[in-house]
Simulated scan of single mutants.
Amino acid sequence: MMNNTLITNLKSGLIVSCQALKEEPLFGSEHMVSMALAAEEGGAVGIRANTPNDISAIKNRSSLPVIGLYKKHYSDSDVYITPTIQEVMEVVEAGADFVAIDCTRQKRPQGISLQQFIHQIRYRFPTTAIVADISTFEEGVAAMDLGLDVISTTMSGYTPYSKQQEEPDIDLVSRLSALHRTPVLAEGRISTPEQCVACLHAGAHAVVVGTAITRPQEITRRFVNAIHAGTQA
């Protein structure tokens, strides 16, 4: 199993998700490294990063632990966060300290079960910490039963059957944390420092924030929408 010190060091801290899609202005490893370094300078305890290129580039420049993932789409599945052992291998080889995988109940690529997938990862990479991205309480419990190292509420609101809301799913964080079984990361739609604190008070081990920090086009849009709403009233 992995070194628990990695998880302990995240306690009550902020993990910044530094990701950009191909169609976004800040796409590219150079930009994501800059984001990660800025997050580190600001006091973040970890980085969440997508693609082997970004993970490797960030690890080469930043001292922070990286939760790595690799978004890939397969025609036979809606699962896209590090969906197969191939993506896991590339994330691990890029130097990620944790690998984040989709642990929802959605059908997986190639028809394998989540339990089979976990077995593949543990067999190939027995010392790598696994972060389970889940969308419901039941999925979180199932991930705990499978012995995953960290649970993250990343997918709440992003599966058809999970709670659809604009606010972070603090109730989900609270229910999973109350089990006192596996550290829980609060992630998803967290846009203010006050919401971060609320998640920690609800029992989150640490908080992950992405869009509100590292996607300036979305930050700008929030301000513009507020201006429009405030001046047209």
Rank of each mutant, 00 (worst) to 15 (best):
N3P: 10
N3V: 07
I7V: 11
T8D: 14
K11P: 13
S12A: 14
L14C: 04
V16R: 05
S17P: 01
Q19N: 10
A20H: 03
K22F: 07
E24G: 09
E24H: 09
L26G: 03
E30M: 08
H31I: 07
M32H: 11
V33M: 08
S34M: 08
S34W: 09
M35D: 08
L37Q: 09
A39L: 10
E40I: 02
A44Q: 10
V45N: 05
R48L: 10
R48E: 08
A49R: 04
T51C: 07
P52F: 01
D54P: 04
I55R: 11
A57V: 13
I58W: 12
I58A: 05
K59H: 03
N60M: 14
R61I: 11
S62Q: 15
S62F: 11
S63Y: 05
L64S: 10
P65M: 05
I67E: 07
G68H: 02
G68M: 06
Y70R: 02
Y70N: 10
H73K: 15
H73M: 12
S75G: 03
D78H: 07
T82V: 12
T82R: 04
E87I: 08
E87D: 12
E87M: 04
V88K: 01
V88L: 02
V92T: 02
A94W: 06
G95Y: 12
G95F: 12
G95E: 10
G95M: 11
V99L: 07
V99W: 04
A100S: 14
I101C: 05
D102Q: 05
C103Q: 04
C103D: 03
R105N: 15
Q106A: 13
K107W: 10
G111Y: 09
I112K: 13
L114W: 04
Q115L: 04
Q115S: 14
Q116T: 03
Q120A: 03
F125H: 01
P126R: 01
T127R: 15
T128V: 00
I130Y: 00
V131Q: 05
V131H: 06
S135E: 07
T136G: 07
F137G: 05
G140C: 15
V141Y: 11
L146G: 08
L146Y: 05
G147Q: 01
G147I: 00
D149V: 00
I151P: 02
T153P: 11
S156D: 09
G157F: 06
G157K: 06
G157Q: 07
G157N: 08
T159V: 14
T159Y: 13
P160Q: 14
P160G: 08
Y161N: 12
K163G: 12
Q165W: 03
E167F: 10
P168D: 09
I170Y: 07
D171I: 01
V173P: 11
R175T: 01
S177A: 15
A178G: 14
R181W: 04
R181K: 13
E187C: 02
G188R: 06
R189Y: 08
Q195F: 15
C199K: 10
C199D: 07
L200W: 06
H201E: 15
V209Y: 02
G210W: 00
T211W: 03
I213E: 13
P216F: 08
Q217L: 09
I219C: 05
I219D: 04
T220S: 13
T220R: 13
V224K: 14
H228V: 11
A229V: 02
G230R: 14
Q232I: 02
Q232S: 14
A233G: 13
